[in-house]
Each structure stands twice: as C-alpha cells, then as structure tokens.
Computed example of a mutant assay.
Amino acid sequence: MPISVVIADDQEMVRTGFRMILESQPDIDVLDDVVDGAAALEAVERLHPDVLLLDIRMPGLDGLEVTRRLAERAAAHPEYGERPRIVIVTTFDLDEYIHAALRGGACGFLLKDASPAMLVEGVRAAAVGDSLVSPAITLRLLRELTPATGRGGCARQPSEPLTEREEDVVRALASGRTNAEIAAELLVSLSTITSHLANVQTKLAARNRVEIAAWAWETGLATGGP
C-alpha cells in the first residue's frame, strides 16, 4: 500500500510544492494538506496517515505542540502505535525548536529548501521507522547538544557497553552519513550497518537514529570522547 501523508504548513506555496513532489511518486499518497496545527491534529484523527510532514512555526498550535500532543496520545493509547511518524521541516533560524521536537519524538528533520529527492526519502524513511536528517542540520544542531561543562553528565547510559565497531558506526552516523556511506567507509555490507544500528538502538532504548546521533553528541562520542 502507498505511504499515506498529511502536510501541515501555513504557506500555500510550500504545501503545493510538497504535494506535487510527493504525489509524483507511485508509493506515496498525500491525503490532505492543512494550514495549522489544529487542522493537523484533526486530519490525523480523521485520516490516520503514516507520516505527518509538519512545519514548526504555524498560527495557533505550532509544530512543537502538535508533536507533544501526538506523543501523549501514543502513550495514552497504545493501540495507535507510533503513527503518524513526524517529519519536521524547518529553517536554520529555528535551532532551539528542533532540539525540542527531537526530544518530543520527531523522526526526521529537513530544510524547506531540501531537494525533492531528500523530501521523498525523508517520508519513506519515516514510514518504516527510520529517519532522515539533512546533513547540515545534523552537524549544526547536534553539535550544540555537547554539554558545555563536561561530557556525558546527564546522557542516558546504555544497557550494556557498545562494541568498538558499534561506536565507529555511531560516530559516522552523528556526522550526518547515511547507512550506505557508513558501510562504504567501514568496508562492510549495508546489512551489517543496519544490524549494528539496531543493536545500538536497543542498548540505548532510542526511538530512532536521530536519538542515537543526539546521544553521541551529548556523551562526546561524536567528537572522539569516551
């Protein structure tokens, strides 16, 4: 079945552009596009999309509040599962909002000027529980998570230590590389990288690769620390 998507953005040109890009793909179906957070929540309840493409700054309920409310709904009603998966679309001047959205459970972060291919891949990744983050956002935002007063002070502790190879994979992930790029760099198969990341995700109780990258910056692992 096609991946079902709802687009929420208060700019008509953005909604129209995103809809045209996504509807050109045979495996993606845009169910609706809406202008604000309240309409986004209503569309989610009515249409049950797989993915919600969500702007942060909108009139009324902003994207952060929508993300928070959907996370609360998922916690209170497990029958909903993790749907919809949220992909945030933002600009460079909203760094602090992205941090909050990441911790709230968003699984993808794209710039509004991202290429059509990246937008499509971001939706596809979210639909299967993975995530795609614009490399520029990864490096700009996650670096800022490194504590200013020492490493690892309040970061979560893994249930068991990461192996040396798992640490190599996490460092590469935190620098913005894709799984394919990590596999090429470490001279291993793509399935091996996928397996390593699944193990790391379990050890950290992380919801997605974005949280793994954030953990790497918080602990200093991304910059060569312990």
Rank of each mutant, 00 (worst) to 15 (best):
P226D: 14
S191I: 04
A184G: 03
S195W: 02
T194E: 10
R57T: 13
V170K: 04
M118I: 09
G129S: 04
A39P: 10
I56Y: 01
S134K: 12
F92S: 14
D113A: 13
V14K: 02
E42L: 15
L141K: 12
L70S: 00
P147N: 05
S4M: 06
H77S: 11
A136S: 15
W217S: 13
Q11T: 06
A38E: 14
I182T: 04
E65W: 00
E42Y: 06
S115N: 07
D93S: 11
A101T: 05
G63T: 03
G220S: 06
A206C: 09
L173G: 03
D113G: 10
H77D: 14
V200F: 02
A155L: 05
L132K: 13
T67W: 00
A106T: 06
H99V: 07
G122V: 00
G153R: 13
R171I: 02
A76Y: 05
L190I: 04
T90P: 06
S189C: 06
L141I: 15
L22N: 05
L47Q: 13
V169L: 01
G152Q: 04
R140T: 12
R156V: 14
H196W: 00
Q201S: 08
A43C: 04
T146N: 11
E45S: 15
A198F: 00
G105S: 08
A114G: 08
E144H: 11
I193P: 00
E82L: 12
D9A: 08
F18I: 11
A40D: 07
R140Q: 13
I98N: 04
P59Y: 01
T163V: 05
L132F: 13
P161V: 04
P84W: 07
R15W: 08
G152L: 02
V89Y: 01
N179K: 08
W215F: 09
G81Y: 04
A75Q: 12
V66M: 07
E42T: 14
A184C: 05
A174W: 01
G220A: 10
Q25A: 15
I28F: 01
T149A: 14
T138P: 02
D62Y: 03
R19K: 15
A117N: 08
E144W: 11
A136L: 15
A205E: 06
P84C: 09
T67C: 15
L22P: 08
V30Q: 02
M20R: 13
Q11H: 15
A172K: 00
V34G: 04
V34Q: 03
L186Q: 00
V44T: 13
G17Y: 09
G104R: 04
P59C: 03
D36T: 10
G60R: 06
P147T: 07
V210A: 08
T202F: 05
R171Y: 00
E82Y: 08
E72K: 11
I21P: 02
A222H: 04
W217Q: 11
I137T: 07
L187E: 06
N208H: 11
V128N: 10
G104F: 02
Q11Y: 10
A126P: 02
E160G: 02
E65G: 05
V120S: 08
A172F: 00
D130A: 15
T163P: 01
I21K: 01
Y80Q: 13
M58K: 03
L141F: 10
P84I: 07
Y97D: 11
